[in-house]
Design a protein around this nucleic acid. Structure first.
Lengths: 337, 337
DNA sequence: ACATCAAGGGAAACCGCTTCCCCACGCACT
DNA sequence: AGTGCGTGGGGAAGCGGTTTCCCTTGATGT
């Protein structure tokens, strides 16, 4: 006999026998079915609360074919971006009585597909953040995951709601801002090579150089960590550029710290921009000019797109592009005369 | 007919009929039961992979009485501490094939109990971070939640594995550090009144004053946010103390920012300590002296305690106390002559 | 007073899987 | 050749709910 617990939990049968009705009636009452006589309903409710009966969600899930749970696959839970998405998603879903199951793929792209499938089987839908997965694999996986919401990815063959942050647009605006301040020699401190969002920034910068042919732009290998930024300070200091676009805020803060140790003043000697507008970007010295990504909105909207699909059984929802909002702060200033 | 999907998923019956065996046999094969003839097992496996059959976890859960999922209740997912615990827990649990369901109580203590109960019914166990819940309520709730692991709380009546960070010890050491630097007038910028960890710090400070009767210690109402710290700058600046113990790093950073706007130098004019050693504490200007809490270990150990209970069906595990490690950095210095 | 009908609740099927029970078959032993 | 026994696999009973189907009951109408 499977699943035997030492102290059996109270089930629907207990309530039924206590109230002197069939368990079908108990079920009807618990689900607000109004075809039950008021007196009997009251009796059932009394018995239920007396026994502290709560329907077993697993049993319900099996019968109903839904779990009231959605899964989210993230590449790395220590990344503030995904934390914020998770949080927004979780809160929004909770408002509608849904829960969130998390799956951390630890940046291993082969895990992403497996975890997503696993999660889908346990949940009513999946929110997928899979920056490392190949396009081909994503196309193949997407239909098996429906209802699915993609973050920072899109599909061609299957229409899937996608929420993508327009990193290219953001970095262009930051670059234009620096040009507006008189900077003519810029440098981009790159992110991780394999990162899809780094590629998007590079594309944006291509457009930028096409638009501003008289501005010089060079690329310096960086990374997405504080230390990566810190260690690039020498390369940045000696590159001759006066405006530095850094991959993200974390690396920018590292760079800021490294430059300050070398006695290079920001923004007097060098202007610096970050990306993401993470919570502490406004509190650095000087505060970081950056591009704000509305990530908690993103989690919220991810849930809304998911709910649409669950309720209407229809995925026909367009891709949402989120243009970052430029936050002008103290780390950028006029070019030195 | 409930749960009808438009495209029915492949079930155990499909595999059974394809392999020409009963679904009982398919189940046996899928679960590695060795009493099945090797030929038949191979045929079943072939059919399963042909149909891409994956057992429905909900069905399994109902039959097995376990979900291979644990729940975690956190008061606020935007708090870096809980993010780190969640992350450590999720990764450790994943290693053993378990998943994590999250429940954010949004700092509402009445929600904590409900969410925990909900989570418990869906999961094989619950990790509970409930700083706001009353002791009485916790005592009453704990037995209904078994297997349960508590974070930063303990129970008297029911033995429950607890992981508690020794905030009292940490704040005492920070205070002693300030005394060692010559400070004789200290102030504690408090956290939220209802917060259990704030109470622990207050207790630690009581011991401290008992030990150092010649040191003056005053209390200034603060909070756990950057803004709360920022807004306390005036009160701090005018209180006459030279060493300030702040509830946590976030508030300390706010205070740091506020003091810097007022031209008060740290640590020359005022020494300042935080608590938590959050990732950016080492990167403020000056870097924050703080007490490091080994939070990712905490998530890891939480899973280990949970696993013990699930496997051995025995909760007899002691409370683990985590002494914070003091990180001496630039925000504290000798008292001004 | 009898036929008709609506409403309400019980029995049973079902969701998908695991596992117990038991039968059938094959092998070995007498 | 008959009996005993071990083994493998099919049938069926759960796990804990929801929902369909149908029968009972009471009310209403003529």
């Amino acid at each position: 006999m499977p699943g035997r617990r030492n102290t059996r939990r109270v089930g629907i049968a207990d309530v039924a026998s206590m109230a002197g009705v069939s368990h079908a009636t108990v079920s009807r009452v618990m689900n607000g079915n109004t075809t039950v006589d008021a007196d009997i309903a009251a009796r059932v409710r009394a018995a239920a609360s007396e026994l502290k009966y709560k329907p077993n969600p697993v049993g319900r899930s099996l019968a109903l074919g839904k779990t009231d749970t959605i899964g989210i696959v993230v590449p790395d839970l220590s990344n503030p971006t995904f934390q914020a998405i998770l949080r927004g998603l979780s809160i929004a879903a909770a408002r509608d009585g849904y829960r969130v199951l998390i799956a951390d793929s630890s940046e291993v792209s082969s895990e992403e597909a497996i975890l997503a499938g696993e999660a889908r089987r346990r949940c009513d839908g999946v929110v997928l953040c899979a920056p490392r997965m190949s396009d081909a694999e994503l196309e193949e996986l997407a239909p098996t995951l429906y209802p699915l919401v993609l973050i920072n990815r899109t599909t061609e063959s299957v229409p899937t709601p996608s929420l993508v942050v327009d990193y290219g647009q953001g970095i262009q605006e930051l670059a234009a801002h620096l040009v507006g301040l008189g900077h003519r020699k810029l440098a981009y401190l790159t992110g991780p090579d394999r990162s899809a969002s780094n590629v998007q920034r590079l594309r944006g910068l291509e457009k930028f150089t096409a638009e501003f042919p008289n501005v010089e732009l060079q690329f310096i290998p960086g990374g997405n960590t504080f230390d990566a930024g810190f260690e690039s300070s020498d390369a940045v200091a000696s590159c001759g550029a006066t405006g530095i676009l850094v991959f993200n805020d974390v690396a920018a803060m590292g760079l800021l710290s490294g430059l300050s140790e070398r006695g290079i003043r920001v923004p007097e000697d060098l202007s610096l921009t970050g990306f993401d507008d993470m919570p502490f970007a406004r509190y650095t010295m000087p505060p970081l000019t950056t591009a704000a990504v509305p990530i908690s909105e993103l989690g919220d909207l991810a849930w809304r797109r998911m709910r649409e699909q669950i309720q209407t059984n229809d995925a026909a929802s367009p891709t949402n592009y989120f243009p970052p909002r430029i936050e002008l702060r103290g780390s950028t200033g006029p070019v030195k005369a």
